Simulated assay, not measured.
Amino acid sequence: MKKFFTVIGGMGSLATESYIHLLNERTPSKKDQDYLDYILVNHSTVPDRTAHILDHSKPSFLPPLTEDIKQQSLLKPEFMVIICNTAHYYYKELQAATDIPLIHMPHMAISVMKNKYPKAKRIGLIATKGTIADHVYEDEIKNAGFELSLGDQAVQDEVESLIYDDIKIKGKMNAPKYHKILQTMHDKFDCDVIVLGCTELSYAQEKAPDHPYQVIDGQGIIVDKSIELGQKIRNGEKIDYTKIYG
């Protein structure tokens, strides 16, 4: 197979399944051959990203992801995406392990947000404790010129419960809990836009999009960028990866 891309996933698997489902659903197609060529690495045994970020004595997720990147590089994909926001804690180290472009999902998400909601003032961020601690989204949001709100401990507890208790452990979506979190960030903390800084939250958005709040879904955005780039490489177009973030 030539002119394909690689998806590094499995963190968690339901979130990766959501990415693949949206990728195929949004790809314009009338026959099998219209879909994109890609390789999925569903590396579900990668150590917990948040646990390591909060306590570096816990197993690191960098070695297994570096191994994945190097293995896939031997197959020469055109680009790679990592379907885990928290894993971007080691983005620089992972990109340094390969010459293949590795698309930065948080950077892509905030670039899109800046263009889509230029008049927004306060941005809410809901994510794992690991993503909050690594500041990957916080820095992107502030560098784009927006105010940031992380809510409070009660919101964080609800977010963690939705991500871990409902989606990761039970494998189920809790729409009322998700909608309540969005409502609280909007009503109590005056957030114009809410960034979903975890792919499990992207899964929640896919399953329960029926709410009135403005959200930025990094995974949904990287799906659209994957389709755009995938179609370009199929058509033989040369891509300047330094300019893809807009």
Rank of each mutant, 00 (worst) to 15 (best):
M1G: 13
K3I: 10
F4R: 11
S13G: 05
A15P: 03
A15Y: 00
T16Q: 03
E17V: 00
L23P: 11
R26T: 00
T27P: 10
S29R: 13
K30F: 14
K30V: 15
D32H: 08
D34S: 09
L36F: 05
D37R: 15
V41S: 07
V41W: 13
N42P: 06
H43C: 05
V46H: 03
R49F: 01
T50L: 00
A51N: 11
D55T: 05
D55H: 12
H56G: 10
K58L: 07
P64Y: 06
E67C: 07
E67R: 12
Q72Y: 14
L75G: 13
L75Y: 08
P77K: 12
F79A: 07
M80H: 08
I82Y: 15
I83S: 01
I83Q: 02
A87R: 07
A87I: 03
H88F: 03
Y89V: 02
Y89T: 09
E93I: 08
E93D: 15
Q95H: 07
Q95G: 08
A96H: 03
T98F: 13
T98C: 14
P101A: 02
L102M: 06
I103E: 14
H104V: 05
M108T: 09
A109V: 15
I110D: 14
I110H: 14
V112N: 15
K114I: 00
P118G: 11
P118Y: 08
K119I: 06
K119F: 07
A120V: 15
G124M: 03
A127F: 06
T128V: 05
I132N: 02
I141L: 06
N143A: 14
A144D: 10
A144V: 03
A144L: 06
G145N: 11
E147K: 14
L148C: 13
A154E: 14
E158P: 00
E158A: 08
V159Q: 05
E160R: 09
D165Y: 02
K168A: 11
I169R: 14
K172Y: 03
N174W: 08
A175E: 00
P176T: 07
H179D: 02
K180A: 10
Q183Y: 02
Q183L: 01
H186K: 12
H186I: 01
D187G: 01
K188T: 14
F189Q: 08
I194M: 01
G197L: 07
C198T: 13
C198M: 10
S202A: 10
Y203S: 02
Q205T: 07
K207N: 13
D210T: 09
D210V: 01
P212R: 08
V215M: 03
V215Y: 01
I216M: 14
D217F: 12
I221E: 04
I221W: 13
I221V: 07
I222E: 00
D224C: 12
K225Q: 12
S226I: 05
I227C: 08
E228Q: 10
K232F: 03
K238Y: 10
